[in-house]
């Protein structure tokens, strides 16, 4: 599923960040890598998605989140 479809306070791991190098560079340097485990903190309609990863709270543009493939992890 896409990161933008995850519900608030659910957990997941990143399966694919896409292949756009510029985006990959930015997103990696701020803490999101393939395989990284994260928590979705807030996901409201038309708003950036708030993701907690590597002890950092990140706000990610909604359109960008539609390009990130994730797997939900329960428990």
């Amino acid at each position: 599923m896409k990161l933008s479809e995850m519900k608030a306070s659910s957990h997941g791991t990143v399966s694919s960040l896409g292949r756009d190098e510029r985006f990959l560079n930015r997103i990696t340097s701020i803490g999101l890598t393939e395989g990284a485990r994260f928590q979705v903190v807030k996901n409201d309609r038309k708003m950036p998605v708030l993701v907690y990863v590597r002890e950092t709270l990140l706000a990610l543009n909604r359109k960008d989140c539609e390009k990130i493939e994730v797997m939900e992890v329960r428990g």
């Binding site: 510029r22 985006f23 930015r26 997103i27 701020i30 950036p48 708030l50 950092t56 709270l57 990140l58 706000a59 990610l60 543009n61 909604r62 359109k63 960008d64």
Partner: peptide, 12 residues
């Protein structure tokens, strides 16, 4: 193609 959306840290 160079437009990048917000990727930003919300600091404590």
């Amino acid at each position: 193609d160079s437009r990048s959306g917000m990727i930003m840290e919300l600091p404590p």
